[in-house]
């Protein structure tokens, strides 16, 4: 095939998948600006732009509170996971100590265990010490859940760092801890951003834990709030779409922002040309 034909084929394949990915999203956006009278699930393009759905959903659904809860829980979980995963990943990748393999395997168990398997006893444990219905009941279990992947991911990164860089840092005489944060972590920014992005998304999307752990309306995260809102407005598709956009938009915007860094970091790649 000619070079030009190949390029056209590439664009055709990419465009097809891109359209498939974006289609339901556009459907939600169009529904959200459709007047309630014209509301239907069939994603029709509205006759006129109507923004009242957002105001109605915001007022009736307490989405301001839900978004604040979601943001707080997700940010703290990402920070905690990153620090703990960097430390543990670095240790598993570079230090030699008895039981390293076994302890790493134990960490990986956290990557595989479904939340459903520990959320029930955890609920009764945390209720026993009065921690349910607090942000900690959402942050700490989700940090634990993210650590399996985080440690696995950071260990793989630290193992991939060429020994020349580690040796150069050792010649500096820098102690281990300084070397980790001054040299290796900055090099690992692309890997770190990927991890932070994934953990942020998982935490934001998490539904079962908030559903089980939190009963106060003021602590509900955005997805949980949306299902409550959904229960009250089953067939009002335009209103549901507006609420859905409110829940999804902050992450989508942050993603656009992080994705640029992520792609730039990936292409520039501190360790390659």
């Amino acid at each position: 095939m000619s070079r030009r034909g190949e390029t056209v084929l590439n664009y055709a394949v990419l465009t097809l998948f891109a359209v498939l990915a974006v289609f339901p999203v556009l459907g939600v956006v169009f529904s959200a600006v459709t007047p309630p009278a014209q509301s239907s699930p069939s994603f029709t393009v509205p006759h006129s732009l109507y923004l009242g759905n957002f105001a109605t959903a915001w007022q009736q659904g307490h989405f301001g509170t839900y978004l604040r809860s979601s943001l707080l829980v997700a940010v703290v979980t990402v920070l905690l996971t990153s620090v703990l995963a960097i430390l543990a990943g670095y240790s598993f990748a570079t230090f030699r100590f008895p039981g390293r393999g076994v302890l790493f395997a134990v960490t990986l168990v956290g990557l595989m265990v479904p939340a459903e398997a520990f959320v029930i006893p955890l609920y009764f444990d945390l209720r026993g010490v009065g921690v349910t219905d607090t942000y900690w009941a959402l942050i700490l279990p989700q940090t634990a859940q993210s650590l399996g992947f985080g440690v696995f991911w950071m260990r793989n990164f630290f193992r991939s760092v060429p020994s020349s860089i580690v040796e150069a840092a050792q010649l500096d005489g820098a102690p281990d801890f300084t070397r980790l944060w001054r040299i290796l972590v900055p090099i690992g920014r692309p890997a770190l951003l990927t991890m932070a992005m994934l953990v942020f998304m998982w935490t934001w999307n998490e539904f079962l834990l908030p559903l089980v752990m939190v009963t106060s309306d003021g602590l509900r995260t955005a997805p949980l709030g949306l299902t409550f809102f959904q229960g009250q407005h089953t067939t009002q598709f335009s209103l549901l779409a507006a609420a859905s956009m409110v829940v999804a938009l902050p992450v989508v915007l942050l993603y656009m922002f992080l994705q640029r860094h992520f792609i730039r970091g990936m292409l520039a790649g501190a360790l390659r040309d």
């Binding site: 974006v22 997805p223 999804a248 994705q259």
Partner: peptide, 23 residues
């Protein structure tokens, strides 16, 4: 294209479910 293709992953699953219910 990359940004668009990855988009479904960043949308809360409850939102995803809501839009597919309509589909």
């Amino acid at each position: 294209y990359r940004v668009v293709l990855f988009l479904p992953q960043v949308i809360a699953s409850v939102v995803v479910a809501t839009s597919w219910v309509a589909i």
